[in-house]
Design a protein around this nucleic acid. Sequence first.
DNA 1: TCAAAAAATGACCATTAGTCAGTTATGGGA
DNA 2: TCCCATAACTGACTAATGGTCATTTTTTGA
Lengths: 235, 235
Amino acid sequence: MGVTERKEREKEFKKSLMLEAAEEVILEKGLDSLNMDEVALKAEVSKGSLYQYFNNKNDLVLGICNKATLLLNEDIQKVLTKDLPGIDLVHMIGATFMSFVSEHPEYFRAMRFHDNLKETAQLEDSTYHHSCRDNMENAFTCMVRAIQIGMQDGSINSSYNPKELAILLWATSHGMVNMAYQHQNAQHFNLLDDLGINLKSMFEGYMKLIGCGIATDEQKKNYDSQSFFEKNGNA
Amino acid sequence: MGVTERKEREKEFKKSLMLEAAEEVILEKGLDSLNMDEVALKAEVSKGSLYQYFNNKNDLVLGICNKATLLLNEDIQKVLTKDLPGIDLVHMIGATFMSFVSEHPEYFRAMRFHDNLKETAQLEDSTYHHSCRDNMENAFTCMVRAIQIGMQDGSINSSYNPKELAILLWATSHGMVNMAYQHQNAQHFNLLDDLGINLKSMFEGYMKLIGCGIATDEQKKNYDSQSFFEKNGNA
DNA sequence: TCAAAAAATGACCATTAGTCAGTTATGGGA
DNA sequence: TCCCATAACTGACTAATGGTCATTTTTTGA
């Protein structure tokens, strides 16, 4: 028969239409003023139908976050296929994240929404939570891989622990991307206003910073390489 | 008489009581489930009174953000009074931010709320918006000063533009602080779970990163020092 | 053609931000 | 001390919106 399979496909298709309607609303009015009645109207279904496909409003937004993390993860994985020194892969992963957010601000909003929900207990009743988390973990693993490649080919200082370094790069690049997002999307974000900003070259500045550091050579001997994580196994 | 002055003081005092009530609610239930009825109840005033002191719910949260930014700014300014090399001042400013967020998660939430509102038009009808912005700008200026001091005393590489470097450090340290916040406050934030984390030493890792960079010496000659901002004045 | 199952609907409910007409408290002048 | 004008306070009310569910419509397979 294959009826159930066909229904499943149709269901997924209808879901995707509803997600697209929601994305449009977010692009137009922002995530804060997303409301279910409007999504239903835009998707040309009733509110009740909407709730047949999504558990609740959070679930709907996490559905968008799921698309976002899938897309980002795909882009980042593609970077790892390139035959380049590890440091360049790290660079490209960061640049990929940067342009992803610039091109899809509504996806970044959905991803921040997911981060915010992590503070609450409401995450469990979404079908998308685990998928979003897995996608981001996968992307993070790509960063670790790029670092490991760099340590092997001699382009990245191998005195770091790869995963620990990945965490630092993950956190700092999120900070950069977030600032870029705000500069692009927030009317009241003034920090960069009195400087002519080119986001691409600001990111290059970031890469230079983590590449070379800010200390003078005289200072550098004061730094050592010990891990910043507690060792679990010792007394 | 001084009656109006006294009334003004009393009004400020009552405002502060209401803000404290709101902070308690945020600490207990999180910012998302903050509701005005509960704040009114906790502050032992009617809802109507609450709205006589604050324009709306956003205004109330920005009132907390105002306290937060005042406090943070005060802490950061104190750092600049120390007689230390500039690089150490930068270090201390970051560490100050880090422990501020760790000790006052509800204040950090309010600050993120403010950042989020910057994307909307709703900011104008808050009395606190400009104050919050000024406080953060002030803290940012402290970072610039610390960098300038470091360039003069030879502890920071002076090939950077101080303000541009401050922006990079501002963004990246926000990223670090945000990750630390999530690790401490979000049940569903798993990224650091399989590592024993000590936030203080993770921050040291960050300082080492921006201090020394990640590249090998061989790689470093590939970086140059050009500004990442467009020059405004040229053709 | 028909009955059972699945899907869709929108009126309805509950919560909560924000309002406002009416009440109470305050302060200064007679 | 009384009185009234002003300021402060109150909570019932409205509007908006997330979420539900009894009913209707559509689909399916015999």
